[in-house]
Write a protein that binds this DNA or RNA. Structure first.
Length: 544
RNA sequence: GCGCCCGUAGCUCAGUGGAUCAGAGCGUCGCACUCCGGAUGCGAAGGUCGGAGGUUCGAAUCCUCUCGGGCGUACCA
């Protein structure tokens, strides 16, 4: 990678100047404009304070010490930036290395052996998945792929609860719908599920069972609950599958209760001094550790709260031997995170064990109208209906193209567009177009390992190569800052640069040497785009 | 009231560990094809980066205040 290469050379220059330290802190970035060279370093600006010299003087001192192996010349600009102009040969060598690395050119081995678990969606089987779950699912899945690209051993987990109070409420709501279908007056409980999805379910149950449950007794509760959970689980799994989300592990909350892990977690917490009793309930002493307020762990009626069970769940994750876990959650869960961190701190689990990747909500825009989502109130657009209309690729792209911390306004008009106005289509088209070039290329024109690349002299070609060369950095940044949108943006940029290059320069021509080199270049462009599409979970079509 | 997120071009958004940061897409207007997939490309117009102070040689970026929007602030999950 060119950036790392230059970083090392600047560090070498730093040492050659007899300055303190190894220069590992030096930053090198792609230049914004051609007149600022290919890469720029802030070494003199950031280093000035370290050695007590003026940035300008330090720059003058370092510039001549930069090796000429890759750098043609160094210019000092502005307050003391070092602008590095590469020799074309260095760029060609970078392309050669990428070609030689094959399909794994953008992957890293930096984290091999580290076990990471990601948990996302984790919706209970009490209603259909919404577009909000869709965003979380894509976010989680793409993060998982990104971490895999860094070499992590990643496990994707879905946590759910198919028993307890919420399911009872679901059962009662379904029973009320069922009585309504049979022509009776029946009302859904106040905290129940108002969604219309229970109506069609009630219809088929009424047809199947007739008037067998006039009262909401124990048997009705069990039957209704089981029927609702079964159908909802089926619906959820179907949507996840269609969105391309595959899990390694499904974790049922019930097992935590059955195994005694909830009780055990409470006991450990108490042993560590993290709990106290008040008003007949057991509380987490959060304020003592800097939390906003203490939180109930065991209600006065003896039932554990969601938080208590979640603590047991995270203890379970830790026991399973993961080095790190990342929970992907919506912004509405923010408050709970502090309590969880404090609980884990009490239990002596290292701070770096748990990370939260937070995301804001999704609204849909179609000719100006926006819908808010709420499962309980039954107001939402389902993920399923969105998939029906747009398909996996488009849904995934739009879900992940925005920074997670921002609200996502899903532009249905743009998503529906089948033309290249649609960025998802535009990127895929670049891939397809290259596939077409490769199909048209005569067999003897195809590049080989020894194909000379130095005939690639156009500015657009060198820029393209530098872009390709930067992909590993983009992947690293996207993973570690929980920012998969950087991949979408990168893919769009490379596609744009390719389309412009294609219009300006012919790949297949009379000059055999030039044709072979250009084929090597576009092959690499295609590989980079395919890598991004793979990471995003989108297809990379050969034809469209 | 308090906590978190967000306010950047008509619209949707990148950029927010300082300097070389005023950017992209869509929309609008104009231009370019005897040729590898025109489902492409090039260009133009368009913004006092919500507002006001402050720190600095330098702020969309850091600090304070303020306005606007979202989400929390349950013995719900």
């Amino acid at each position: 990678m060119l950036r790392r290469l230059l970083q090392e050379e600047l560090a070498a220059a730093w040492r050659a100047a007899g300055l303190d330290g190894d220069g590992a802190w030096i930053e090198v970035t792609r230049s914004e404009r051609p007149e600022f060279g290919d890469f720029t370093s802030n070494v003199a600006l950031a280093g000035a304070k370290r050695v007590g010299e003026s940035p300008r003087a330090l720059a003058e001192q370092l510039a001549p010490l930069v090796s000429e192996a890759h750098v043609e010349r160094v210019e000092i600009a502005g307050p003391g930036f070092l602008n590095l102009f590469l020799r074309p040969g260095a760029v060609h060598r970078a392309l050669r290395e990428m070609l030689d690395a094959g399909d794994r050119f953008a992957r890293s081995t930096e984290a091999v052996g580290t076990r990471l678990q990601l948990e996302y969606v984790s919706s209970n089987p009490t209603g259909p998945l919404t577009v909000g779950h869709g965003r979380q699912g894509v976010l989680g899945d793409v993060l998982a792929s990104l971490y895999e690209a860094l070499g992590f051993d990643v496990e994707r987990e879905y946590y759910y609860n198919d028993a307890g109070r919420q399911v009872d409420l679901l059962a009662e709501s379904l029973w009320a719908r069922y009585r309504q279908v049979l022509g009776e007056e029946a009302s859904i409980p106040d905290e129940g599920y108002q969604g219309e999805y229970l109506i069609s379910m009630a219809e088929s149950i009424a047809e199947e069972l007739g008037d067998r449950f006039p009262e909401f007794d124990d048997e009705a509760r069990r039957t209704m609950g089981a029927a609702a959970v079964e159908r909802m689980t089926e619906s959820i799994r179907g949507d996840l599958d269609r969105l391309g989300l595959r899990y390694d592990h499904w974790f049922s909350e019930t097992t935590l209760h059955a195994s005694g892990e909830v009780d055990a977690a409470l006991a450990s917490l108490t042993e560590c001094g993290g709990t106290y009793e008040k008003d007949g309930a057991v509380w987490l002493a959060a304020e003592e550790r800097g939390g906003d307020r203490d939180a109930v762990l065991i209600r006065s009626d003896g039932r554990p709260t969601y938080l208590m069970v979640d603590i047991a769940y995270h203890l379970n994750k830790h026991r399973r031997g993961f080095d790190r876990v990342i929970d992907v959650q919506g912004a509405d869960h923010h408050a709970e995170q502090n309590a969880m961190r404090i609980a884990l701190a009490y239990l002596g689990i290292p701070e770096g064990f748990l990370d939260y990747a937070l995301h804001q909500f999704v609204s849909l825009k179609s000719s100006g109208e926006a819908l808010r989502m709420s499962t309980r109130k039954g107001r939402f657009v389902t993920l399923g209906s969105l998939l029906d209309e747009l398909g996996r690729d488009i849904v995934r792209y739009f879900m992940v193209a925005r920074k997670p911390s921002n609200h996502l306004e899903f532009d249905l008009d743009l998503a529906r567009s089948e033309s290249l106005d649609n960025p998802a289509t535009y990127i895929q088209y670049a891939h397809t177009r290259i596939a077409s070039i490769l199909r048209n290329a005569p067999a003897d024109a195809l590049p080989e390992a020894s194909t000379p690349l130095d005939v690639l002299a156009e500015a657009e070609e060198l820029e393209l190569i530098k872009d390709l060369d930067g992909l590993p950095d983009v992947i690293h940044e996207a993973a570690t800052s929980f920012s998969p949108h950087l991949i979408a943006e990168y893919a769009l940029n490379v596609s744009r640069r390719f389309h412009a290059y294609y219009t300006e320069h012919r790949v297949l021509g009379d000059d055999a040497a030039l044709t072979a080199a250009r084929l090597a270049l576009v092959l690499m462009v295609q590989r980079a785009i395919r890598c991004c599409l793979d990471l995003l979970g989108m297809s990379a079509p050969e034809t469209m």
